[in-house]
Design a protein around this nucleic acid. Structure first.
Length: 255
DNA sequence: ATGGTCGGTAGCCGA
């Protein structure tokens, strides 16, 4: 089994790249973030022709998350239970015996901003939900754009980013609270090249200079962690014409 | 040198 996560930064613009990547990578389950589409504009037919069933929780202009899968999708949940939010950032689904939770974690804008407080509150509620989900579904994968670089080695210039948004200690502690539930950052279950990132700002030729952050993650519960065979960032689509500012991240498993 | 680029949308906001 091969699963993936990709912040596409507008699925309207990025559909050709997404279809090309699905064809070459052939993942079984994919979480997309920042589709920026309403449900009626979601390209379900084009994805079906590519061999993927899909569910979408959409919103005009902002956010929007989708799950694509080769097998039937059931058990769809679109909100963190008990956390009312009009922002479409959550999409949980069951495919086979895998529970797949796709997240677009709030960016937070800047440390101390009201959006930062929303981000930390959101992550606190997420932790409570994931603790319960893991009880119900041992084969749990939590994927998405977490908008948090877990450690300094996930940041091209840690000193420049020290205690800034995406890297602050409270954000990292909120992420560690998820790994404290037994969810592992699958990427770190393997030796990895230094300077591996998943997001590069469009400005300043940051991709060419590899000035990025690793903020797109695939977390796995023990029943999946023990079946992990690989976890990596696929940088290739970031180098394509008219790219998203994020690259897809991938995890592979035995069965 | 404190900006720079995208995308959505129509003057800026969000990332």
């Amino acid at each position: 089994m091969k699963i993936a996560s990709w912040n596409v930064n507008s699925l309207k613009v990025r559909l050709p790249q997404v279809l090309a990547w699905l064809e070459q990578a052939r993942p079984d389950i994919v979480g997309l973030q920042e589709t920026k589409l309403t449900d009626e504009n979601f390209p379900a037919e084009a994805l079906a022709e590519a061999g993927y069933q899909s569910v979408h929780s959409g919103q005009k202009t902002y956010n929007g998350v989708a799950v694509l899968a080769r097998e039937p999708i059931t058990g769809v949940v679109t909100d963190i239970p008990g956390f009312a939010d009009h922002q479409r950032r959550v999409l949980a689904a069951t495919i086979g015996d895998t529970r797949f939770i796709n997240l677009y974690v709030p960016n937070g804008k800047a440390v101390g901003d009201e959006k930062y407080d929303y981000k930390l509150a959101w992550l606190s509620h997420l932790r409570e939900w994931l603790a319960a989900e893991q009880e119900r579904h041992p084969r749990l994968a939590v994927v998405g754009d977490f908008n948090i670089a877990p450690e300094d080695r996930d940041v091209h210039d840690p000193e420049a980013w020290r205690e800034r948004i995406l890297c602050s200690t409270p954000e990292r502690e909120a992420l560690q609270a998820l790994t404290g539930l037994g969810l592992r950052d699958s990427f770190r279950c393997f030796d990895q090249p230094e300077g591996t990132f998943s997001w590069w700002d469009y400005r300043m030729n940051n991709f060419r200079r590899n000035r990025g952050l690793r903020i797109d993650l695939i977390l796995t519960a023990p029943a999946l962690t023990e079946r992990l065979t690989a976890s990596y960032v696929d940088r290739e689509p970031r180098a394509w014409e008219r790219p998203s500012d994020h690259a897809p991240v991938v995890a592979e498993f035995t069965v």
